[in-house]
């Protein structure tokens, strides 16, 4: 890790000094334990702030999109000959690069507007899992120590094994190494337990219908519609999200339980073929809503019906933006006595 961090800082510094990029999006030390925060570095001398560790949970592709688009908007009234572009460098692990691929496929920016510093990834720590292991006590300090995390809480110290607190999405991640990059730092990360990727979905599918519905409604009851999940999601970049559209108003903004359910169904459905399972939405949700259980189903269907994994390669279009004459259509209703 240290080595990766050192290389990362050097590369970032060089990119900024050589004016190859205008800004580097990376992670820096946060003010709370178990957490790093996104940082935006424009001065080569600040590159030393960059960190890369097990607490880097957020998918930074979101910011790449935001920065480029905000800059473009600022250029709207500028004379054509004076227009500038902004090149963004980004620290990207596997899922972040897949989100970048999705942006590129959806033509959100050009390939030469991003410089991708690829980092190998061994998964990030899910804060909620740590919190459960220390019985919800307030965590004052935490540090990774080999394969353990030493946690200091308000009622004493505790060591928790790192492998028990890695986020669920990271455990079965297929793409912990970047799928595209301009510069790679560090060595390739070892593969994860990919065979069990859809175990949880398979299990859920086999529950009785009513049990599935009650799980869904129970999870959605927790949701307070803070929209943190949408705001952190790199694939949710619509200028005006359907939840805020008023003509027509697609979904009520009150606390009616069906409005919450409909909001979630539609937001998740917007992720069909576009969710890279980076876990950011789950990580930022203040209420611990199990979004992943549902998003993973879309991922599984994308794979099983259309042999597609979101953001896997620039040349493979998203499943819902293409079609084939011979697509499966078992679900199409044919009346029995059709003559």
């Amino acid at each position: 890790m240290e080595n990766v961090e050192k290389q990362l800082r050097e590369e970032a510094k060089r990119l900024l000094a050589d004016k190859k990029v205008d800004v580097i999006v990376g992670y820096e030390e946060g003010t709370l334990p178990l957490q790093t925060v996104p940082c935006f570095i424009t001065n080569p001398d600040d590159a030393g702030k960059l960190v890369w560790n097990s607490f880097c949970s957020q998918n930074l592709a979101k910011y790449v999109h935001d920065i480029i688009h905000q800059h473009r908007e600022s250029q709207v009234r500028v004379k054509p000959e004076d227009k500038t572009r902004k090149v963004v460098g980004v620290v990207a692990r596997g899922c972040t690069t897949r989100s970048l691929v999705i942006h590129l496929q959806e033509r959100q920016y050009d390939r030469d507007e991003v410089v991708i510093i690829g980092v190998p990834c061994t998964g990030f720590v899910a804060k909620r899992k740590v919190s459960t292991l220390v019985d919800g006590k307030e965590i004052l300090e935490a540090a990774v120590n080999g394969d353990k995390i030493s946690v200091r809480t308000t009622s004493g110290d505790k060591d928790v094994p790192l492998k028990d607190v890695i986020a669920d999405n990271c455990l079965n991640c297929h793409f912990n190494n970047p799928v595209i990059s301009d510069i790679m730092v560090g060595n390739e990360a070892p593969p994860r337990d990919v065979d069990r990727e859809y175990d949880s979905v398979n299990k859920f599918e086999n529950l009785p219908l009513e049990e599935r519905w009650s799980y869904f409604t129970k999870e959605m009851e927790k949701c307070i519609r803070c929209y943190a999940c949408r705001n952190t999601c790199p694939s949710c970049y619509c200028k005006i999200c359907f939840v805020e559209q008023s003509q027509p108003a697609w979904v009520g903004t009150g606390d009616d339980p069906t409005d919450v359910q409909v909001f979630q169904i539609m937001r998740m459905f917007h992720m069909a073929g576009r969710c890279v399972d980076c876990g950011s939405c789950v990580e930022v949700c203040p209420m611990g809503v199990d979004l992943r259980n549902f998003l993973k189903k879309l991922d599984k269907d994308g794979f099983e019906l259309f042999a597609h994994k979101a953001g896997e390669s620039i040349d493979k279009p998203a499943p819902l933006s293409t079609f084939e004459m011979g697509d499966k259509e078992k679900f199409i209703f044919e009346p029995e006595s059709s003559s």
Binding site: F204, E205, L209, E210, E211, R212, W213, S214, Y215, F216, T217, I265, M268, F269, A272, F294, K297, L298, D301, G302, L305, F306, P319, L320, T322, F323, E324, M325, D327, K328, E329, F331, I332
Partner: peptide
Amino acid sequence: LSARRKFAMLKNFLTYIGI
């Protein structure tokens, strides 16, 4: 053909959540 893909996924998804 685009509709077919969308609805294949939609129907599966709605069934999955319990509809």
